[in-house]
Simulated scan of single mutants.
Amino acid sequence: MVKKLLLSLFPLLTCVLLYAQCPDAAALTLLRQQQDTLQHLSQEIFNGKGNEGRTKAVDAFIPTLVRALKTKYAFRFPFDSLKTVSIQYPADSSFRIFSWALELETGFYRHFGAIQMNTPDGQLKLFPLFDASDYLSNPDTITNNKSWYGCLYYNIVQRHYFNQEYYTLFGWDPNNPRSQKKIVEMLTFKNGTPVFGGPFFSFSEDSVPTPTRNRFIIEYKKESTATLNYNKELDMIVYDHLISETNEPVKKYTYVSDMDYEGFKWKAGKWVHINKVFHDAIPLGKGAPTPMPLDQKKKSMMHPKSAEDFQPATPAQKKKKQ
Rank of each mutant, 00 (worst) to 15 (best):
F130N: 13
F130S: 14
F130L: 13
F130T: 15
F130C: 08
F130H: 15
F130M: 10
F130P: 00
D131Q: 03
D131I: 06
D131Y: 03
D131F: 04
D131R: 09
A132N: 10
A132D: 12
A132R: 13
S133A: 11
S133P: 00
D134H: 13
D134F: 10
D134Y: 12
D134K: 14
Y135T: 13
Y135K: 12
Y135S: 13
Y135G: 03
Y135Q: 13
Y135E: 13
L136K: 08
L136H: 05
L136N: 01
S137C: 04
S137V: 12
S137Q: 09
S137M: 10
S137N: 07
N138A: 06
N138L: 03
N138M: 02
N138R: 09
P139F: 09
P139R: 11
D140I: 09
D140F: 12
T141A: 04
T141C: 01
T141R: 02
T141Y: 00
T141V: 09
T141S: 08
T141P: 01
I142M: 10
I142S: 06
I142E: 09
T143Q: 08
T143P: 00
T143H: 03
T143G: 03
N144F: 09
N144V: 12
N144H: 11
N144D: 15
N144L: 08
N144I: 12
N145V: 04
N145I: 02
K146G: 04
K146S: 11
K146R: 14
K146H: 11
S147T: 15
S147Q: 15
S147E: 08
W148F: 08
W148P: 00
W148E: 01
W148A: 05
W148M: 05
W148V: 10
W148H: 05
Y149P: 00
Y149V: 08
Y149F: 13
Y149M: 05
Y149D: 11
Y149H: 11
Y149A: 07
Y149I: 11
G150C: 01
G150E: 01
G150M: 01
G150A: 02
G150D: 00
C151Q: 05
C151K: 02
C151V: 07
C151E: 03
L152Y: 03
L152D: 01
L152H: 01
L152V: 06
L152G: 01
Y153F: 15
Y153L: 15
Y153H: 08
Y154L: 04
N155E: 13
N155Y: 08
N155I: 07
N155G: 05
N155A: 14
N155W: 04
N155F: 07
I156Q: 05
I156S: 04
I156Y: 06
I156H: 04
I156E: 04
I156W: 05
I156M: 10
Q158V: 06
Q158C: 04
R159L: 11
R159Y: 11
R159E: 14
R159N: 10
R159M: 12
H160F: 13
H160Q: 15
H160G: 03
H160M: 13
Y161S: 04
Y161F: 14
Y161I: 06
F162E: 14
F162V: 07
F162L: 12
F162S: 08
